[in-house]
Design a protein around this nucleic acid. Structure first.
Ligand code: NAD
Ligand code: NAD
Lengths: 213, 213
DNA sequence: TCCTGATCGTTAAACTTTTCACAATTGGAA
DNA sequence: TTCCAATTGTGAAAAGTTTAACGATCAGGA
């Protein structure tokens, strides 16, 4: 294994590069770090360091071979290996995520959704079954689920989280605005949309206040 | 104005604190930075510095008065001032955002949504009208819209972005997986869900590979 | 063949964020 | 009253991240 330590910051930028590379691969054979940096308004050395962390096959004058770079990023992000996933809470947000195919590119495979509302259970969303919550443990254990998405109301999130962790799930993507307590070894990624909103509000305010941002 | 410079990192943590403070305000009069730090698994000095940036009214031995702290964070985040907002692209994700009331706490007020699909236009989602895209400019100008949410397919995002910017909107919340080019003075906040997914995938992979994370 | 300029990769510097260490304050118990 | 333990606030160290500077490489044209 020629693994280098990839910083979290770099890791977060890789999907962005990957999406861009995919979009240009049909009409570009090579791409330079400089060109990517311009595309994203980043510093070119930063991009070069990011790419160097996953690739190392950049060549002076020509840059990187697009398809090669895609493969290397996909390898680091492990896009080819499917992450077997369940989603709990098939409400508005849950259904949107279930319907979205864009995460397939990153290996996400939602096997099933769970909900405790009888009106939703039994339906299919984007071809994926919504099952009663009581089946959660059985399905997770039988299908060897690795990743759990939580889109239930905040008040229910910790309980769901505990149950997921108890099934051996070690990665949780939490959309509820709560902090979850998990056993060691389980990673929670909180999708905190309010944080982004705070940044935007601040910008609007700064503008009105007079100080340029 | 006794404004201090608040770092972006701090700004992102404030909504998290705020949500927690709101949840405890009924049964707690005071709260210490230490207690908050334990709740979130952060360093206590970091929390103290964050709070100090917005408050400065912490007292030794007792900590902060919860209601006071809430008011101060709300003031910094400018939660009381409504951000007049439009959403473009009333698809799965757009409808989920339209239906969500949680952002009201942060001053978000979605006035209307726009879509170019005739089947969606004219409907109401959570009491909010979905209008034809052709009305975008008129509404934005007449209602003095400040913030735009983009939930259209990636291929359409730049065009929508341009139109929003042309209406004088200076803050854009982009959910499409593209980088948007904007005039100076316009702030784009990209909600990149794939980045979080990358972190989770990496964790799963590291686990299987043997190296503990 | 030999330049030239684009590009890479790396080391060092600048900057940011987090953590540590410690003095200062204060409410309440002895 | 006096002391103690909890807690704040802050300057300095440490860790992490971004930017700058520069030599090395190499494709393609003179
Ligand atoms: N919709 C958004 O745009 C948005 C944005 C940010 C955060 N969130 C958060 O995401 C979560 C879901 O939001 P939403 O808008 O989809 O809400 P929603 O009410 O539409 O959906 C919640 C779903 O969870 C189900 N549910 C409730 N308790 C459950 C339990 N114990 N087990 C299984 N299922 C249960 C409900 O039946 C419902 O279908 C909330 O925590 C919300 O704060 C939503
Ligand atoms: N659904 C998710 O969970 C999710 C997650 C991450 C990112 N995204 C991104 O969010 C965006 C929307 O995703 P979605 O799942 O809601 O897709 P969707 O297809 O359900 O919705 C897109 C909507 O935009 C409308 N639209 C298309 N072109 C338009 C235009 N030029 N002007 C106005 N409206 C237009 C369509 O009519 C449709 O209603 C996409 O860019 C997607 O990549 C979605």
């Amino acid at each position: 294994m020629d693994e280098k330590i990839i910083s979290a910051r770099t890791l977060r930028r890789l999907p962005v590069y990957l999406h861009y590379l995919n979009s240009i691969q049909d009409h570009c054979r090579n791409i330079s770090a400089t060109a990517i940096s311009e595309e994203f308004g980043l510093n070119d050395v930063q991009v070069r360091k990011d790419l160097n962390a996953v690739s190392g096959t950049g060549r002076p004058k020509t840059g990187y071979v697009v398809t090669e770079l895609i493969a290397q990023i996909e390898s680091v992000l492990d896009c080819r290996t499917e992450s077997k996933t369940v989603l709990v809470g098939a409400g508005n947000l849950g259904k949107a995520l279930l319907s979205y195919e864009g995460f397939r590119d990153f290996g996400l495979n939602i096997i099933a959704a769970f909900d405790n509302s009888p009106t939703i259970c039994g339906t299919l969303v984007n071809g994926k079954p919504v099952l009663p919550l009581t089946d959660l443990e059985t399905v997770c254990r039988e299908k060897h689920i690795q990743l759990g998405i939580i889109t239930v109301p905040a008040s229910q999130a910790q309980e769901i989280c505990d149950r997921l962790a108890a099934c051996g799930i070690t990665a949780i993507w939490n959309f509820a605005p709560t902090i979850l307590r998990v056993p060691a070894g389980v990673l929670v990624e909180n999708e905190n949309l309010a944080s982004s909103l705070a940044i935007l509000s601040k910008h609007l305010r700064a503008e009105k206040g007079g100080a340029p941002t």
